[in-house]
């Protein structure tokens, strides 16, 4: 049973503090995947991947379902995490871009003085 307790938020912050788990969220955003294919994609052991998925599952970010011998993972209903990730990815990208643009602008400005 999923419980909507306040500490869910803490759990999702903890879950997303890890780069691999953020990567898993992004990967699942493109489509459902089995634990073994995730382990392969992130080059880690099955056991290691299971642990990451459990953390995400406890936070409600990922839902898993076992069909036969394969456990499939998909994003949980809390799609907000993906949005926050996306905003952060863009912020990091544009900050880095614009810092480089600052340098070029300085260069142009210096060159334009007579």
């Amino acid at each position: 049973m999923v419980q909507c307790l306040p500490h869910t938020l803490d759990l999702s912050f903890a879950a997303l503090a890890d780069a691999t788990r953020r990567g898993i969220i992004v990967r699942l955003g493109r489509g459902d995947a089995s634990i073994s294919s995730l382990a392969e994609a992130f080059q880690m052991t099955l056991t290691g991947m299971k642990k990451h998925v459990q953390v995400l599952e406890r936070a409600g970010l990922v839902v898993t379902q076992k069909v036969g011998r394969v456990r499939t993972c998909r994003l949980g209903a809390r799609g907000l995490a993906a949005e926050a990730e996306w905003i952060e990815a863009h912020r990091a990208l544009f900050e880095a871009r614009f810092a480089a643009l600052d340098d070029i602008i300085d260069e142009i400005e210096e060159g334009s003085h007579d």
């Binding site: 990208l93 880095a96 480089a100 643009l101 070029i104 602008i105 300085d106 142009i108």
Partner: peptide
């Protein structure tokens, strides 16, 4: 996305519109 630059628009536009300049900042080194 918004950001202020300490130079007039013609300078910022130039860095955006000239391929040789654009190429130097669009992709972060990291």
């Amino acid at each position: 996305v918004t950001r202020i630059f300490d130079a007039p628009p013609r300078t910022v536009y130039r860095a955006w519109s000239e391929a040789k300049l654009f190429q130097r900042w669009w992709v972060p080194k990291s």
